[in-house]
Design a protein around this nucleic acid. Sequence first.
DNA 1: CGTCAATTTGAAGATGAATTCAAAAACTGA
DNA 2: TCAGTTTTTGAATTCATCTTCAAATTGACG
Lengths: 201, 201
Amino acid sequence: MAQRKSRSDRRLDLIEAARRAIIRHGIDGVQLSHVAEEAGLTSGAVLYHYPDLSELLVEAQHAGMERFYEQRLRQLATFTDPVEKLVVTIRSGLPTGPLDPDVRLLNELGGAAGRNRVYGVLLTSLYDRQVSMYQAILDTGSALGVFRLSADSVTIARNLVALEDAYGYRITARHPLIGPEEAAELILSYARAATGNDLAH
Amino acid sequence: MAQRKSRSDRRLDLIEAARRAIIRHGIDGVQLSHVAEEAGLTSGAVLYHYPDLSELLVEAQHAGMERFYEQRLRQLATFTDPVEKLVVTIRSGLPTGPLDPDVRLLNELGGAAGRNRVYGVLLTSLYDRQVSMYQAILDTGSALGVFRLSADSVTIARNLVALEDAYGYRITARHPLIGPEEAAELILSYARAATGNDLAH
DNA sequence: CGTCAATTTGAAGATGAATTCAAAAACTGA
DNA sequence: TCAGTTTTTGAATTCATCTTCAAATTGACG
């Protein structure tokens, strides 16, 4: 019998297991047994904690998003120079490679968000927070005279997040010419034009 | 009994039905019965034409992509001025609204492309063709002296397609502030900076 | 009109997943 | 150690989907 755990610990385990199961089988393809297998438990045990699988899936997506966003904020906080901040943030929004679990998970949301309002709201809220993150960097740089913005900071920030998103898809789909490095360079090309800074560091 | 049709007609019907079913239930959630229902047939009839559902789904995605791309080319062909071409092409890459079926279908590929090589190849080839399309516009405009490109035409073209993709997701996810108009404006903001042309028309 | 091949149906059987639940196991606190 | 509670199992049941196939229907062609 699998080691017994406290209610909250087991729920965290299950959220992790669901994350992995979603990545493996797709948000619309996950089954109770997939989650159970990832967690090393039986379906019954999963159901004991989450009588409704779809709730677990939402929590897993939510947790994945939060983790992703928190990670980015944490990296961002280790720099003070707006140029460094911008460059680091661009990189932290891209997958490390085609298998990057965080981005793979987020990508699963894309299609589902058009069908499921809850997923739509989750995805939209992540987007908006990432936009704010970039906006803060851009505004600071602008105030310090380091950046000469070619448009509203909102506009540029929205485009930066959009570019990250899209290259995340390209990389996980294994585009033969676009990997993490190339994607970063492409986004930086825009960032240079938009900030009037060559972003060398 | 549903009206009988020739082999090839029925296959086209089924591809259309599969398209709708994928949009409704997700690429990993579609079932034989969903396709049958959309086609007004029984599961058995679907299986008679496509013994393997996954093959039908691939054909449906392929057909959807081709249609989307051909439509864009056709619109593009009705203009000669590079500025007009660029503006029209940017608009033709965005969904008409959250329910736009062509974009909804493509969005379903995003997540699946990370798990399924066939979908990855489809998505990548669509991306590359769209990049070429933009590249041709940019190069022509550059040769004519209408555009002063801020970077390689490949780089700009890749970013333009990436932006379209990403705003397609935002719009289908019903972002409250970003609709087709706003997305077009955001992409145009980049296009202006990248071409040195104010793109007024 | 009648024959034949192609298409579709509908029902039956097989497979697989979700759900339920009594019993077993694991931990808790006294 | 023991009683009580929570968690987990595993098996039985129900429910849904896939698969198969004989029979019915359709349209083409002579």
